[in-house]
Design a protein around this nucleic acid. Structure first.
Length: 834
RNA sequence: GCCCUUGUGGCGGAAUCGGUAGACGCGUCGGACUUAAAAUCCGAUCGGGGCUCAACCUCGGUGCCAGUUCAAGUCUGGCCAAGGGCACCA
């Protein structure tokens, strides 16, 4: 064994051996219980960044730990390889997105292997390959058959820079999630998936996920946005064309219905023209045109003062018989509820502001039980707290929560309303006007209309004869061969759907494909998927809290309803890892504070990178990269290496079991106990939320303890060698999930058979996982005054006696009365004095 | 505005049940080895006060204010700050 640690040499050597021996292949059939550890698969952007390194190291250590504990572990990797960057790169360099993607995958694969990750590469998937997207298309067809995919004309989010539409989830603060440019509204006919059909179960089942963080669950709950309320229909009394019309509204405050003083419809409201009198027509038209011109950001800003114009018509409140005017105002949103709002300015802050501006009347209908609010004209804002009803016909005196029910019930009974649950979630728009994605497998026949592509004709291949230099339209439209086809029903002329699918579709099912990645007959075998899924531990960034994680949950439920699988949540436990920072801010090329993994591998080796990225912060928190920290981890590995190499001749891997009392020398018994405590502590720290930072501090403590022990020895006898062997092999095994190459090399140099990564995880003896004597803490009035070494197993009275016998205690209690003594066995005595 | 998360030394962070606050590391300072450097090793490192120095003694200290308790970083109530999410969603 070499005296010095040469990570680069060792790492290359073992990576080659592992690859050649298929060390990390996962059999589908095994007597062992299964464990599925998964990292969110990367987009092949070019090179790994430190966020990837952190993500994959965390999952790798989990996978290795579970394997050592006796699980049959599935730990796969793949590529989320469709998407716009490949297409943009192609347009810029006149290349092909496929070539660009393949090159990136090749380079990043090399990097992943250099990191020493224990992937089963036989299960690798890439979403851009026909053998994968064939099944993405097939799944689309299953959803279509089930009525969960449909096409409709709608106002959609359009990103001009990306040249495509976006899902609601991909619009962040009115801007594109990818390129940050302002999103516009366009009316287009597009494909949608009916995620709203699952809104309620997606919300409910969050309760089935105790292994997910509350932050992610509340983000999803807020996004789904369930609210309880009522629909009320208000008859129009003076429609200009004499038609009998009603305006339905959705409200979460049916208790305030007697306080309505006007009604607002969105500028895009479908019946708005019929509800406008000739005298008001021009003003309304102008207002609507203005609203259309505004960007989403402007429109939705709460800062902007409220504006609106009256339509000139009126509705009747069926509860009171009161007549009130109709207005249009852009604070009413056409997409939510019915697109119309009943305005109760006294009890809604928005209505209050609007009514004040346009001098609309105010009518109080809720007040605190024991207080009078006075004239609402004098209020500074609406009263939105709970209270009791007033001025509300038969409901006066009722508390407002009960009134919500009672009032809605009255509307139901009299036929002008109903209870209504409303969701904020909208259907998922999946059409993209781009090339580098899975083509939507649909054709449009001149005679038969929309026709799905028959399953035996899949995949609908991406055409290769396209011109990537075009501007302002999708390159796919330039293919001379793609567009025209024949109708699968009548055989006549048909044209292909030119849009591709949102890449989030591809990533909504990849974790299922790993269970049966090479299957060319079906999407996945149902038994295999049911065996491996759900994922036991999913690890990835918080940025997917809504997008990917919500879509995947929807897909799983929808595929279950299609009969393709038997579980309803894909990810049992979710670890959202924090970001990797440098000097307090996120690593980014534009800030110039990135650290290149290649350089770290080259200068320090992968084991140092793995150790460091786990060391300083718990996985869920942000991690600040520091060069000094890397250096420190490198030094530590050198220290471990020296400890092993200098003791090469003192260590045997054939160690008989050492029981309590076997070792005669106290310092040897102490070291034995330290090792058992380390095994216990490290095992518990990994099991309990993967606290790798404390695991690593325990590696250091154990290493320090072995060095300290050795520093006291001038020569070693048989007992010394035995305990040293035990200590060092335990350290190696405990470190093997993290320092994967170093421990493997040392294992072999010491004559170990097979791979250290196939060794069983260390076990501890509860009797030995504690020190032989106990430090009894003696407190007076809760403050620590003394510490005494005592034997284990002393009873309460003996401990109390010992504490009272302490010189310090005697001095401090002298002349005072002892009121009470509390004894915590094996820990502490607290003496209360006055 | 609503929701979630987090507040502990110069820094990252430790601390099963309420029971020794600051593990482990980074940084800094001092020392050993060396002609010198690197590497390595040893020691110190929360703050105030006391003692000629030291050992030592003592008081305070986990964002703030209260409370429960023999005992609070940990439990309860009320605030404050930072980060993140949602937001004219009726």
């Amino acid at each position: 064994m070499k005296e010095a640690y040469f990570p680069q040499e060792i790492e290359k050597k073992w990576q080659k051996v592992w690859e050649e021996t298929g060390a990390f292949k996962t059999p589908d059939d095994s007597d062992k219980p299964k464990y599925y550890a998964l990292s969110m698969f990367p987009y092949p952007s070019g090179k790994l960044h430190m966020g990837h390194v952190r993500n994959y190291t965390i999952t790798d250590v989990i996978a290795r730990f579970k394997k050592a504990q006796g699980f049959n572990v599935l730990h796969p990797i793949g590529w989320d390889s469709f998407g716009l960057p490949a297409e943009n790169a192609a347009m810029k360099h006149g290349a092909n997105p496929e070539t660009w993607t393949d090159e990136n995958i090749a380079y990043m694969t090399k990097q992943l292997k250099m990191l020493g990750l224990s992937y089963d590469w036989d299960r690798e998937v890439a979403t851009c390959k026909p053998e994968y997207y064939k099944w993405t298309q097939w799944l689309f067809l299953q959803l279509y058959k089930k009525g969960l995919a449909y096409k409709k004309e709608a106002a959609v989010n359009w990103c001009n820079d990306c040249g495509t539409v976006l899902a609601n989830e991909q619009v962040i603060d009115g801007k594109c999630w990818r390129c940050d440019s302002v999103v516009e509204k366009k009316y287009l006919s597009q494909w949608f998936l009916k995620i709203t059909e699952y809104a309620d179960v997606l919300l409910q089942d969050l309760e089935k996920l105790p292994g997910w963080g509350d932050n992610v669950k509340t983000m999803q709950a807020n996004w789904i946005g369930k609210s309880y309320g009522a629909i009320f229909r208000f008859p129009v009394v003076d429609a200009p064309n004499g038609e009998k019309m009603e305006v339905p509204v959705y409200t979460t405050r049916p208790d305030t219905v007697h306080g309505i003083t006007y009604l607002v419809v969105a500028p895009e409201y479908k019946d708005i023209e019929k509800l406008t009198t000739p005298e008001n027509k021009s003003a309304v038209e102008e207002y609507r045109a203005n609203a259309r011109k505004m960007s989403e950001i402007e429109r939705l800003s709460t800062e902007r003062p409220k504006t609106g114009v009256p339509l000139g018509t009126h509705c009747k409140n069926p509860f009171t018989g009161e007549i009130f005017p109709l207005w249009t105002a852009d604070y009413a949103l056409v997409e939510y509820g019915t697109g119309a709002v009943m305005a109760v300015p006294t009890h809604d802050t928005r209505d209050f502001a609007f009514a004040k501006k346009y001098n609309l009347p105010l009518k109080t209908v809720i007040k605190p039980a024991d207080e009078d609010l006075g004239d609402p004209e004098t209020w500074a804002d609406a009263y939105v707290e709970p209270g009791v009803l007033v001025n509300s016909c038969g409901f006066d005196g009722m508390d407002n929560e009960s009134a919500k029910k009672a009032i809605t019930q009255k509307a139901v009974d009299e036929g002008f309303g109903e209870f209504k649950t409303q969701y904020r979630l909208r259907d998922w728009l999946i059409s993209r006007q781009r090339y580098w994605g899975a083509p939507i497998p649909v054709v449009y026949c001149d005679k038969c209309g929309i026709q799905p592509v028959p399953e035996n004709q899949l995949p609908v291949m991406l055409p290769k004869d396209v011109d990537f230099s075009v501007v302002g339209k999708s390159p796919i439209t330039t293919s001379p061969t793609f567009k025209d086809t024949v109708c699968p029903v009548c055989g006549g002329h048909a044209t292909r759907e030119m849009d591709t699918m949102d890449t989030f579709i591809c990533s909504s099912w990849y974790y299922l494909r790993y269970a049966d990645a090479r299957n060319d007959k079906e999407c996945f075998n149902k038994d295999k998927v049911n065996h491996w899924l759900p994922v036991d531990q999913y690890v990835g960034g918080i940025e997917h809290a809504i997008l990917h994680l919500l879509y995947s949950r929807f897909f799983t439920k929808a595929l279950r309803d299609c009969g393709l699988l038997d579980f309803d949540e894909p990810f049992k436990n979710l670890l959202t890892q924090g970001m990797v920072l440098k000097d307090g801010s996120k690593m980014s090329k534009s800030k110039g504070n990135t650290v290149d993994p290649d350089e770290i591998f080259e200068n320090y080796g992968a084991d140092t990178a793995r150790l460091f990225i786990l060391s300083d912060s718990p996985p869920a928190r942000d991690f600040d990269w520091s060069d000094a920290g890397v250096e420190g981890c490198y030094k530590f590995l050198n220290r471990v290496w020296r400890l092993i190499s200098t003791n090469q001749n003192n260590i045997s891997l054939q160690i008989p079991e050492i029981k309590a009392g076997d070792l005669k020398k106290k310092e040897n018994d102490d070291l034995l106990r330290i090792v058992h405590m380390a095994i216990k502590g490290i095992t518990n720290d990994i099991s309990n939320d993967f606290q790798f930072n404390t695991v690593i501090s325990k590696y250091r403590e154990l290493t320090n303890a072995i060095y300290d022990w050795q520093g006291k020895k001038s020569s070693l006898d048989e007992e010394d060698k035995l305990i040293l062997s035990f200590a060092i092999t335990s350290l190696m095994k405990l470190m093997s999930p993290v320092a994967v190459h170093l421990t493997e090399e040392a294992w072999h140099e010491l004559g170990g058979q097979g791979s250290i990564h196939n060794q069983e995880w260390c076990k501890w003896d509860e009797n030995l996982a504690k020190s032989s004597s106990i430090t009894l803490v003696v407190q007076i009035n809760g403050k620590v005054k003394d510490k005494i070494e005592v034997d284990e197993g002393l009873g309460q009275d003996e401990l109390k006696e010992k504490a009272l016998a302490s010189e310090k205690v005697k001095a401090l209690t002298d002349g005072k009365t002892i009121i009470k003594t509390i004894v915590v066995p094996k820990k502490l005595v607290n003496i209360v004095v006055k």
